[in-house]
Design a protein around this nucleic acid. Structure first.
Length: 437
RNA sequence: GUGGGUGUGGCCUAGUUGGCUAAGGCGCCAGAUUGUGGCUCUGGAGAUCGUGGGUUCGAGUCCCAUCAUCCACCCCA
């Protein structure tokens, strides 16, 4: 049997590859207006980075990472040996950890400096079972702002995320922005204990996994899809009622700025993110339909302690990631069509084999002049050359036969207008430019 | 990792309670008088029915396994 792409991966064929490129370009253009510039970090990082940054207990790290080691080190591991920490590598499951690592490593935020605003776009890898809206290799576009904790940073990032979604064609009416604050290391532990205590009181009404969560990370219980759990958790203490003064003010300021910008949002006290590094502001953008049960197209938040986790000096940070494939599904649900990658401005058709060399020369001259030009390479009849030209969407067809060649010209046909005219071969590139510019 | 659905030419499908040379549409290729497209018509190529076993006189149709895929759980973008 022919070899197929690995489970949960897929090929971006020409039309989509073009769309993905434009998607990234649009992101760079929109985010660039807010001062964000592109960085490229490795697809593999030391496993340690993700363990420390994202959190060892998170699902992403504990069971969804692809580990990468060299063949030689793999042999050592299989033989029961040990390898150096720096040789333990993983394919990145998300983009933030790598960018923050790069910021720390290259000291992009020296003390007293203006914040670093960075964006990235590329594949992420998670060893999950694929389903609608979830693959093992998928593309994300994200931004990270390090070195500023002002609520205006949170607000502008959220605003530009919404602006981007609208720019690529996702109807505002089909999106919902959820926001919440998760507090900081000062107020969250106390709140977490409150939730845990509440859950213990209702232990007999909650599912098993939720009770496991109560011990490890009680906040995750808010995500449980079990109806009864959801009902019980609806009565649990809300983080927004237990924020410290600083966090409450910060959160209020973010909302005020969003209000001022006219960006609609829904406060969702149950919104908790699955990655350990989040503090204070968290947000998520969901689409109403078309995405199955994976309805979040973007999400992020503040992570003021992450730089320290990775070994840097204390540096506040904020970022978000958006899923390209999920956006694509949202666009398809909205009826947006992808552009065609293949195009052709001019097709040179040969009447018989005697003119092929001349035709080849004409094609080459046009290409050198910047025209997308093609000819037949399979000895097709003139009739089928026209069919091919039509299929390629050629705007003009240059017919080259013994008659034309005798006078150093070709018959240039306007496919849409059904009109033809004799044009000197040397004048074809110029004529094409006249038509298209 | 767990659960369920699906797997027929490049694509989408038909295939009745297992039975004559696996059917249709799209697409592809070639024609429909003299050097020309998009519509229409005609003809043609192309499938050992995901793979490997098994039951049977006989299996695309039943059973098992395996692979792939889809959907859901978990979790995330």
């Amino acid at each position: 049997m022919a070899i197929q792409a690995p489970e949960g991966t897929r090929d971006l064929l020409p039309d989509e590859a073009l769309f993905w490129t434009r998607f990234k370009d649009t992101a760079a253009e929109v985010f660039g207006r807010y001062g964000y510039v592109l960085v490229e970090t490795p697809v593999i990082e030391q496993t340690e980075l993700f363990v420390r940054g994202i959190g060892e207990a998170t699902d992403v790290v504990s069971k969804e990472m692809f580990t990468a080691v060299s063949g030689e080190n793999l042999k050592r591991l299989l033989d029961g040996g040990a390898i150096k920490a720096k040789s333990r590598l993983s394919l990145r499951p998300e983009g933030t950890a790598g960018v923050v690592r790069a910021v720390v490593q290259h000291d992009l935020v020296p003390q007293g400096a203006a914040p670093a605003k960075l964006m990235y776009a590329g594949p992420m890898f998670r060893a999950e079972r694929p389903q609608k809206g979830r693959q093992r290799q998928f593309n994300q576009v994200g931004v990270e702002c390090l070195g500023a904790e002002a609520p205006s940073i949170d607000a502008e990032a959220i605003i530009m995320l919404m602006r981007f979604f609208e720019k690529v064609g996702i109807p505002a009416s089909s999106m919902e922005l959820l926001v919440n604050s998760m507090g900081c290391e000062k107020c969250r532990p106390a709140y977490r204990d409150l939730v845990r205590a509440y859950m213990d009181e209702h232990a007999d009404e909650l599912c098993e996994t939720c009770m496991t969560r109560a011990a490890v990370n009680p906040l995750r219980a808010f995500d449980c899809k079990n109806e009864q759990c959801a009902a019980v958790m609806a009565g649990a203490p809300k983080i927004t009622d237990h924020l410290c003064d600083d966090c409450r003010e910060h959160y209020a300021a973010v909302r005020e700025l969003l209000d001022g910008a006219g960006v609609p949002y829904v406060e969702e006290p149950k919104l908790v993110r699955g990655l350990d590094y989040y503090t204070r502001t968290v947000f998520e953008v969901q689409v109403v339909d078309g995405l199955g049960s994976q309805n979040a197209i973007g999400g992020g938040g503040r992570y003021d302690k992450l730089a320290e986790e990775v070994g840097g000096r204390p540096t506040p940070g904020l970022g978000f990631a958006l899923g390209y494939e999920r956006c694509l599904m949202a666009l398809e649900a909205a009826g947006v069509e992808l552009p065609r990658a293949q195009r052709c401005d001019l097709f040179v058709a040969c009447v018989d084999d005697s003119v092929r060399a001349s035709a080849f020369g004409l094609v080459q001259a046009c290409r050198d002049a910047g025209i997308v030009c093609e000819m037949d390479h399979q000895g097709r009849s003139l009739k089928s050359q026209f069919k091919l030209a039509d299929k390629l969407g050629a705007a003009r067809v240059a017919v080259l036969g013994p008659d034309e060649l005798a006078e150093g010209a070709c018959t240039l046909r306007d496919m849409a207008a059904h009109e033809e005219a004799r044009v000197k071969l040397a004048d074809v590139p110029e004529e094409m430019h006249r038509v298209f510019l």
